[in-house]
Nucleic acid binder design. Structure first.
Lengths: 329, 329
DNA sequence: AATGATGTGTCAACCGGTTGACACTAAGGG
DNA sequence: CCCTTAGTGTCAACCGGTTGACACATCATT
């Protein structure tokens, strides 16, 4: 690995001059600039970003903590976050917490030790204290944390209402609400619980009843998930509409319906949430509530960029959701 | 951010002593050890890993370049890679290249500048030269690069044969081979082309003919992909067996079949590849060739750990694939 | 009493790059 | 001819932590 000294020697200038070229400061003639550039090229020189970061006290790295990238919602989220981070010159350190609080804490410490400039939390955030005296920007994705931590979310409440309303409008008489997440249950801090709220608030004056099941997802391909759904629907044979809080859950519901020989959407209408890729890869294609993941990711990165420049940002950044009608309703 | 100096002051010892405690070298009494630990706790001190890395010339970071995490194969891969990396104390810098060669190059440079200890390439690797004079370990995932770069792969050839054989055994008379990837076509360097080879090698003595389609996947949810498949099957109405080189493609084939009112598996048998989560989330549940992604990821990280300790490693690390029979065959 | 292991401190160099202070030269303008 | 601006160099300090050399204790052994 060549160092700045080697470049200086090869170009026949001083280290300071090379640094000046590198950082574009002070007076430098075009001739010197060229000589230095030439030397760099010949040596295939790349400045050591660690050394620069150390001096600047800025690493241009952001840490990303999520439950697991293997869930399609997070994999799409991570994709877009990385894209926009890269656009702004940030690198992404990825951490899968599996919603394990102790692992989450370890990751936070690790990220801090490694001098990330900011952290995006897409995982649970339970013990708030741990995050407050971290003197670096944190932004939270779809989770409430504390009122001094900016949050990016989408309109979960309206999402829930839209889902209910659609099922009601399509003539459903008894609804089922299926929730659950990979790697542990969803807690109240998770804003997704507002979906349930919205879902229920749409029902009172319709006289439509609803039942609810919280699934403890064990792994995407695990047949036990479907089995539990089948049992649930056997207990509630009159349920004719399902709101699943993620498309993955909705896909499992579809499987349960097939197993129970219920036709979709005739005997059972299903609506999912997120509108990730899988929604249009299952059959029938899934009606879903779309979260604008790309836009939310872009917003998250912009928030970070602003925070790092000391600008004020709004604490709550909520995006509208849209109903995507396909073939399950 | 407290520094080692502050800890020394608070504990009433010298910086050297703190460093000795931190790194467990030389003689230190238990009393001092405790005093220092206490001071660290009180100050909430975390050693600056950048500074340490700079001195040690080892960052414990590994770079990961893949086409896109949003594809389920890669999202599962990344999940496991990060898991095992973390186990061994490595952090993961994630890069989505979208199979764009210039972006790939930029990422490689970026990772080098940022002093990653090693790179895992799960993306295309086309201009070999660029990677050879990188004086850091690279390992390649399921792609051939150069004979001095270790590679982790699975037995694609056998995978192809297993798929063919199953379709033949199940009585198919005309097979279709569907390939294609997200973000650009698959090239010869991609070992997945061996799947096609294996697929074909199983056919000659059976007298079964086959046709092939390379799809240019535009995005998971894009309906045009299905339309193209529908057209293809209309051109080949007698095709009754499909080998898709990924489960995502197989899911699209299922959609095309539904659209064409072909029953699965009676009129059309389908087998996918990878056996990622989606394989058991579609209906009918997909028969697939399973790649042991977890084991492959573990191997990749172990290879890196060995390379970083200067140990010799085997250049080709191929894992067996297994046929997972479900309901599409 | 000499020896050696243990425990801690001081000091300086180093990792690779950045920056400010300052000196010096050459060229151009008024 | 003086002044300013451009262009480059030298030097040292700094980012935060690590390490080796060396000095100087203390304490237990022999």
């Amino acid at each position: 690995m060549p160092k700045i000294e080697d470049v200086a020697a090869k170009a026949g200038v001083s280290v300071t001059t090379v640094s000046r070229v590198l950082n574009n400061r002070g007076y430098i003639s075009q001739a010197t600039r060229d000589k230095v550039a030439q030397a760099m090229k010949e040596l295939n020189y790349q400045p050591n970003e660690m050394a620069r970061s150390l001096f600047r006290k800025k690493s241009n790295m952001i840490g990303l903590i999520i439950p697991t990238v293997s869930h399609p919602f997070f994999s799409e989220l991570v994709y877009h976050l990385e894209y926009y981070a890269d656009q702004k010159g940030y690198k992404v350190l990825l951490c899968n917490s599996n919603r394990d609080i102790s692992k989450e804490r370890k990751y936070i410490d690790m990220l801090k030790k490694n001098q990330v400039d900011a952290i995006v939390m897409g995982s649970n955030v339970q013990d708030v204290k741990h995050y407050l005296n971290l003197n670096l920007p944190i932004i939270s994705f779809d989770r409430t944390v504390a009122n001094n931590i900016p949050i990016v979310t989408s309109d979960n409440y309206t999402g829930g209402r839209l889902a209910s309303r659609l099922l009601v409008d399509k003539g459903c008489r008894k609804l089922a609400h299926i929730s659950g997440g990979v790697g542990g249950p969803n807690h109240a801090a998770l804003l997704a619980s507002k979906r349930f709220q919205g879902f229920r608030d749409e029902l009172p004056d319709t006289g439509i009843e609803h039942v609810s099941l919280e699934l403890e997802i064990t792994g995407l391909g695990d047949k036990r998930n479907v089995d539990e759904l089948v049992r649930f629907f056997q207990e509630h044979p009159d349920a004719d509409g399902v709101f699943a809080t993620s498309d993955v859950l909705a896909a499992l519901v579809i499987q349960a319906c097939h197993q129970l020989k219920k036709t979709i959407p005739q005997e059972m209408k299903i609506i999912g949430y997120d509108d990730v890729g899988i929604a249009s890869l299952v059959w029938p294609r899934l009606t879903s509530i779309r979260q604008p993941i790309r836009e939310m990711s872009e917003c998250a990165i912009e928030l970070i960029a602003k925070l790092l420049q000391g600008e004020e940002v709004s604490m709550i950044n909520s995006f509208p959701v849209t109903l995507i009608q396909r073939d399950t309703t």
